[in-house]
Design a binder for these strands. Structure first.
Lengths: 219, 219, 219, 219
DNA sequence: AATGAATGAGACTTCATTCAT
DNA sequence: AATGAATGAAGTCTCATTCAT
């Protein structure tokens, strides 16, 4: 019965609210990346965090809200990185390519430092419930829109042929980049613990070159 | 199928074992594609199939085994299609490209006719439990290996520069193709019910051209 | 984990669906009457019924639905009893009173045979969640409307003064009858296990006389 | 009160112990009346009162003790009002009736000014745990005893027939009055926010007349 | 081959209560 | 006197799986 007397087993140090929420967020992200949404249980998260079941609900209204919070936070950070990469001051093809390589490099570096987030956003999020799935997709779509804006700008500057099918190319390039990040970071088994054998620099350059020149034109 | 009204009294026609298993497989595939592994329940599958709970276990040892069976079957079919596309009799770049377009077209057509399988293999499978996840990945990896063999053969024929980084390019191209299929078939929301706005032919050609010439070289 | 092998502890005889639902209904009604909605737990109900937790949800979508089902069923039965008691063929005050006594007697007898239902409808239902509370109140209001129709009919027959305030009197009489049933059946402590010291006949007569003549006029 | 915005920073004025307890009592009563015992949470009460969780337990040993305190306090006040209404100096039926009307009026007025208490005592208390339920019932029983004393006194004064069944009549009249208060104050839906359409005077008179003369004798 | 009632582990969530500060 | 983070028991509900018929 509720209302009876209980003894407290472990005396857990009290944390600042923000600190504890951050801790739970990180633990949860780790488990979400490893196991996916459905196999990540609140019970396992709190166990790893070393707090009680109820504590989780002090910081999140529900498991779903927690996942959403994590994705939303990650999306914001990622887009911030990408946005500051877009400068569009280039006027030659070479500059455009260099600038794209830099952008990809930023993206790949961010991905490397936020492996768990990446796996959640681009892989495991797709198996989750609709709201989380949606949030993950939005991140992808934001990337695609950014890519599209970039290509349009390049066409305006006559760096690309005027008849380039921009949406199509944006889609191809975004798909190529995001899924390449997955393979690169997590290997053929999409394993969180995989170690990439290639540096972010080389990957970024390869992806950019592939995007601009394809297999054949890549000199 | 789904939503049909069956009363408990309906005397279910006895089916051949193989026929019944096939029926369950199809129903399950539909639900797996729509809802993902964890939200697909045995109870819903048998309801849609119009059989009883126990019947499911006459044909599959477990829910997991059923999903695995579905993926394995699909993988076999898909690889059959792709293998017969690789003939490598080309001796000029133009022939190689044409042959690749044909191959992509076969792949894209197959994908269109097996939407549910595609979504399971390339999207929803990633949210499932490890064994299913693995099975889905194997399909992807089989594609990548096939792509690699093809590039190697092209290099031997001097259709590609000798210093081409084959594994890297194979990875880039496979990622580009599979994730493009997803966007094309299921739209930005990865929705099973999305209708592609572009024909398989055009998509196949665009993807191949992108792969060979990239954005800039694509004339 | 779900999906692992488990052994079955007790081999429970399989029942007809209707039989099991009836059993669960009865057990649940007993506990609802005794403990009220919130202190009645599904876990206690299934324990008393000797089935497992999951079995409950084979027959009811939720605890709330079960309570609603019980109340609705009870309401229907109760109103059936009361409706067949209204015949309105009387043409003198004496006949009207006799007919009312008969009606009250039917009500009181029904109440005696359905103690648990009564306590749920007129006492414990009020502490439950809104939907159940509402369902319980509807029963009361149905009684009040029936009483009102009866008084109107009596006024038409000139058995009551033309200026009788019918809604007010109907309210007074219904309140008096229902709450009297509570005191009578369950005693001053509203205890399910109380045994009434007065027969249904005497109670019905007293209540009817009180209703018609009040304290003073009651000769 | 409810719904006011308080920031955590608001430095809560230190209150006198008694004052703070009174405040908590009032807030709790409001919520108990609105939502019943089980749906009233300590967390909501302290939120509305603008104090912290722990503060509640500075003033009450438990949630149950708080509810008991509230009921006990209310019972005392109510009985005070009723007792001062019983003076028994009347020597004619008319005086007795007038005095009863005055008493009922006092009761009805008190009820109107203490809606929350009434709903807790006569409606919502019945859905609570046993000790609270008991406390609520005791109030009812105190009313019944008071009514009984009054009827006895009237019989002694030969204002009532010597063979009047006093306990029965007291029960009938008390039930009639208390449940009438409920319908009158809270309407057919027993809603705390209902506004009575009839004045306390008219209700008191109607109830008294019904009690003395019944439907027929009421001239 | 087929049924479907029954199982029970385990998931999510709530909330009265405690206690270090 | 006051805080509020932390606790954990207990509740509701789901669903893969079994087994007697």
């Amino acid at each position: 019965m509720q209302g009876e007397c209980r003894t407290k087993m472990t005396s857990q140090r009290k944390m600042e609210t923000a600190e504890r929420k951050q801790q739970l967020t990180e633990v949860a992200l780790g488990q979400l990346a490893l196991n996916g949404y459905h196999k990540t249980t609140v019970s396992d998260v709190v166990k790893e965090a070393g707090v009680s079941q109820g504590t989780f609900y002090l910081y999140f209204r529900s498991k779903e809200e927690a996942a959403l919070h994590i994705i939303e936070e990650g999306k914001t950070e990622l887009l911030k990185v990408l946005e500051q990469g877009y400068r569009n001051e280039e006027t030659t093809v070479e500059e455009m390519i260099e600038s794209t390589i830099r952008l990809f490099y930023d993206f790949f570096s961010f991905a490397m430092e936020h492996r768990n987030l990446m796996i959640l956003l681009f892989i495991k999020g797709y198996g989750a419930d609709t709201p989380i799935h949606k949030a993950a997709l939005e991140t992808f779509n934001a990337l695609e829109r950014a890519s599209q804006r970039n290509l349009e700008r390049s066409r305006e500057l006559h760096l690309l042929p005027q008849d380039t099918d921009i949406p199509m190319q944006a889609s191809l390039i975004t798909n190529m980049v995001t899924s390449t990040i997955s393979s690169w970071l997590f290997g053929p088994g999409l394993d969180v613990n995989h170690t990439p054998g290639i540096s972010a620099e080389k990957m970024a350059r390869s992806a950019a070159m592939f995007g601009f020149y394809g297999i054949i034109g890549n000199k």
